[in-house]
Write a protein that binds this DNA or RNA. Structure first.
Lengths: 345, 345
DNA sequence: GTTAGCACTCATTTCACTAGAGTGCTAATT
DNA sequence: AATTAGCACTCTAGTGAAATGAGTGCTAAC
């Protein structure tokens, strides 16, 4: 059987109505509230066909129809067009508070959550390169050194180091010099035993401090992977009866508390994507590959902070989420984000 | 009417039974499952008295009794004794990961949530003194300076400063010297115009950089107030039918997403408290002063990281929360925390 | 090809009814 | 005087039958 134009229109109407009401849609409703001018009987016939083709389902014999995953998929694939607008308000808000990327991302999560009424998560940027750009060790007081490490993405990490006895100034100067000349531009993998040995040889004494410092550096670089996640509006899940069933909702909400889980959900951005497309993906039901989301849909997008530095945004809602609006909002937002990050750079 | 020993025992029995079951408790239940050896009729009479005195309520005419806020209050006040134990497992876990106070607090929240099955929140430490201990400005590359500020509680803040043109090394040295000698030991209030003027005079040129630097310092010191909050187990709220009513639960859960709200809930620790008592407080229903918590109870405690640096822990659950266990766990935990922070120091 | 009409299905609502838990009161018992 | 047994009464939760109504599928007419 072929999916002709009329069937497509009916399917659209069914899905749109269902998105609004969340109730199974009957033939009469479509007959009345669409501009197709067909009787309910005709609609019924077509619906019957659509069901046979797998685009819609009947929850039970004498109920209306609801879209199947396949139906949603078709809807998303064919009927989506990016829309601009509505996001401008965010822009100004963002720029005021946009001092730290952390804040921006948290704001983005919140903005999306309040605007879409779905649950939102944003994964912090993953820096694909993590090389040391600058190291400075300073003595703060008799017992503490402060190690400040700037990475080549301008992220700054710092860590206190406790020492047994004060280190003379001239040793500090020497230490800093050696560290910077030796480690500059290296990533964690390149800091092997040979490099460490070379540093120790140059320092002569005070090798104990070197050990501490290197340990801190190592931790700092690896720690980078311990990515942040920003979420907002998790409780929006409770808005949708089909998800707010106790055990399901608890599962989902729990997962929202676990950064690891969210990272797993969001996955990694695909590299090598075109810069302009924000790689917006829609996962419906089982497509999410996450069991507790089998009654949900998730829309994800990839944002880019600078060349090679990506993060992801995810919006989770019921299957009947307003894909059109979500994708539109995301698309528009991504444009704004690009601008903001460009300016910051 | 007087609350004699028998009435007290019956009240205890009612509350304990209600804590277990969450259902109204009838006279027969108490008669059977308490060692008072009284018939249900006698219990009924006593219950009637207890109700008159305001310690228990009847949800409707022919239902059993449930404790009133006043009843809970009495229970909490009279029947509570600190218990040790059960918390030892946390200790080891904590010490492994206890590199940063952030992590410790997040762990604490999680530990409490999983162990009590209630929602938990921990407010980050409030440093009552925020004086500059050490400042260092370094040039990272042609366009960026890095300001690192160490406060007298050893918290480290850093901020990139964008500059138009490179600053010569000797100027940097001078700048650092001036900043450290002038600002050391000052708090944000003491950095008034006179101080700023003095710095500028000493620097002579490059006053523009000074402005940026001071702005950063100001922000950093004030920013301190923007306290962190760690939460865990918010979804435990859904476990308790009396709270999991849609709109109530949504209210509560939403609040858990807002750091500000949580701070308000937790309030500030009372200063000048004895070090040993952890100032454990129990708020029942309206006592929380928070509307969305009127069906909840909250137990709070104050922890101390070092002299003058306090934070708070709160546990939110249904009114029929197991006060005994919660307070016991908290008490024990606080002891452990004290030890850990002492060691770190 | 489209539509009207009708019998049929099934979830949901409504209502009356019952069982059971619990109370309050009174009178009997200790 | 305190305790208990007994009983009438109240109220909720649960059950099942009947009514409701949205919706379908099929057939025959247009």
């Amino acid at each position: 059987m072929e999916l002709d134009d009329r069937k497509l229109k009916i399917l659209q109407a069914i899905i749109r109505t269902y998105l609004e009401t969340g109730e199974p849609v009957g033939s009469r409703t479509i007959s009345k509230y669409s501009d197709l001018n067909l009787s309910s009987a005709t609609i019924r016939n077509e619906m019957s066909d659509l069901e046979e083709m797998g685009y819609i389902l009947q929850p039970h014999t004498s109920a209306g129809r609801i879209p199947s995953d396949k139906g949603y998929r078709l809807y998303v694939d064919t009927m989506l067009e990016a829309k601009e607008g509505e996001v401008n308000s965010l822009r100004e808000e963002l720029q005021e508070k946009a001092e730290k990327i952390d804040d921006v991302l948290q704001q983005v999560a919140k903005f999306l959550a309040t605007n879409t009424n779905y649950a939102t998560m944003v994964s912090g940027p993953r820096y694909q390169t993590k090389r040391v750009k600058f190291i400075q060790i300073t003595s703060v007081d008799e017992e503490h050194l402060l190690a400040v490490i700037v990475l080549d993405n301008n992220a700054v990490k710092n860590q206190m180091i406790r020492i047994e006895e004060p280190i003379p100034d001239e040793v500090m100067v020497k230490l800093n010099f050696i560290l910077n000349t030796t480690l500059n531009g290296l990533d964690v993998l390149e800091m092997n035993l040979a490099v460490i040995q070379r540093i120790k040889e140059q320092m002569g004494e005070h090798t104990q401090v070197i050990d501490s410092v290197l340990e801190v550096i190592g931790k700092t670089l690896v720690d980078q992977d311990d990515l942040e996640v920003y979420t907002s509006g998790a409780t929006n899940i409770l808005r949708y009866p089909e998800l707010s069933d106790k055990s399901k909702a608890a599962d989902l909400l729990n997962a929202f508390e676990e950064k690891k889980v969210i990272h797993q959900w969001l996955g990694l951005p695909e590299k090598g994507k075109d810069n302009d497309t924000h790689d917006i993906q829609v996962y419906i039901g089982d497509e999410t590959q996450v069991d507790s989301m089998k009654d949900c849909s998730m829309v994800t997008a990839t944002y880019q902070i600078q060349e090679g530095v990506y993060g992801r945004i995810g919006i989770v809602g019921p299957k009947r989420m307003d894909y059109d609006k979500v994708v539109g909002t995301l698309n528009s937002l991504m444009g704004q984000l690009d601008d903001i990050f460009k300016e910051k750079k």
